[in-house]
Amino acid sequence: MIQRIIIGGSGGQGVMLLGKVIAQSAMLEGKQVTWFPAYGAEVRGGTSHCMVTIADSGIGSPYITAADTLIILNQPSLGKFKKLIKANGLLILNSSLAEAGRQTKIKVLQFPFTGIALKLGNLKVANMIALGVLVAAQKTVKVNNILKVFKSMAGAENPKLLEINRRALEEGLQLNHG
C-alpha cells in the first residue's frame, strides 16, 4: 500500500502543518512516511504546498508526480496541481475559496472549510476540517493518533487551541458522513 497526497493552499492556511500532522500520525502507526515541502520564497497570501507519501515499506521518491489525493484550500493551488492527480483520484476541495469546475475522471469532495472554520470561531482550522474529510473518506490514519499528535504539538499545550482543532477535525469527519 502506498498513498501519495499533495496539499496545496495559500501561505498562512496551515498547509505545511496539515501535512506534518498526517505524517506524524502515520509515523505513530509504524508506517513509512515522507513529508516534502515547497521551500521556495513562499509567503503569506501566495501559494504553498507539501507532499506526503505514506507506505507500508520503503518510500522511493518523496517528490510526487502522480497523486492519489489532492487537498486544495484555494483556487491558485487547484490550477497548479489538478494535472497531477491520478485518474479516479480524490480531490478534497475548500469550496469557500475554490471552484472545482466539471470533473469527470476524479472523485470530488467539496465543502466550505473556511466558512465552517469561521463559524467555529477560528479561521485557521479550515485545514483540520479538511483533514477530517480525508480521514473519513480514506482512513489514511486513525483519529486517535491525530489527537495524540495534536496534544504533542507545542502550540496545543494551550487547551483552547487543542479543543478548537479537535472540534474542527470532528466537524470534518461528520461532513463526509452526512
Binding site: K20, Q32, T34, W35, F36, P37, Y39, P62, Y63
Partner: peptide, 10 residues
Amino acid sequence: DGILGQMMEP
C-alpha cells in the same frame, strides 16, 4: 541535496 535537506522522515 535539497530534497534530502528538506524532506522529513521518521
